[in-house]
Amino acid sequence: MGLQLRSPSNQIRGLQFAATGATVAKVPHVHNARVFIPMNSADAAASNEHIYDSEVSGAPKATGEAWAVGQAIYWDNTNKRFTTTASGNTACGYALAPALAADTVTPLFLFQSF
């Protein structure tokens, strides 16, 4: 199923810009030390819609980590998954629902680039 934007459409915040590298639809990427979710696949330097604020679920999650409500969430750009591990990763939100350590996809969480 993959990453899903769960906020009502009038509450999802995005902007258009051309990323320095190619992007894949709904696979987060880091741009200028911020995590963005591209809405479409695009070549490098091609304009694309990028989400910076939304409730999200169903995205890849690091296994072996339980999530607690309110816990800080980070994007692991190397392994392309969300995690609670801060070291070497980029902050991008907070857990809105708990997750079990064995879970491989995220529960509902607040994704925020800024």
Rank of each mutant, 00 (worst) to 15 (best):
M1I: 13
M1F: 11
L3S: 00
S7L: 08
P8G: 07
P8W: 06
P8T: 09
S9F: 14
S9W: 11
N10S: 11
N10V: 08
Q11I: 13
Q11E: 15
R13W: 11
L15S: 11
Q16S: 14
F17A: 06
F17Y: 12
A18N: 08
A18K: 08
A22D: 07
T23W: 05
T23Q: 09
V24M: 07
V24L: 06
A25T: 11
A25D: 06
K26R: 15
V27I: 11
V27Q: 05
V30Y: 02
V30H: 00
H31W: 08
H31Y: 10
N32L: 14
A33K: 13
R34D: 05
R34W: 03
V35I: 07
V35P: 02
F36W: 05
F36D: 03
I37S: 00
I37R: 00
P38A: 05
P38S: 08
M39Q: 12
N40E: 14
S41Y: 15
S41E: 07
A42C: 09
D43N: 12
A44N: 06
A45D: 15
A45P: 03
A45Y: 13
A46R: 14
N48V: 08
E49T: 15
E49D: 15
H50V: 04
I51D: 02
I51H: 01
Y52F: 13
D53T: 09
D53L: 12
E55Q: 13
E55W: 13
V56K: 00
V56I: 14
G58K: 04
G58D: 03
G58Q: 01
G58L: 06
G58W: 01
A59D: 04
G64W: 08
G64E: 05
G64H: 09
E65M: 13
A66K: 09
A66Q: 08
W67S: 01
W67F: 06
A68E: 08
A68V: 11
V69E: 09
V69D: 08
G70N: 11
A72F: 09
A72M: 13
I73T: 03
Y74K: 05
D76C: 07
N77E: 09
N77L: 06
T78C: 07
R81H: 12
T83I: 07
S87A: 15
S87T: 14
G88L: 06
G88I: 03
N89W: 02
T90H: 05
T90G: 10
C92W: 03
G93R: 01
G93P: 01
L96K: 04
L96W: 02
A97I: 03
A97Y: 01
L100M: 09
A102T: 14
A102F: 13
T104C: 13
V105M: 08
T106S: 04
L108D: 03
F109P: 00
L110M: 13
L110T: 09
Q112E: 12
S113M: 03
F114G: 15
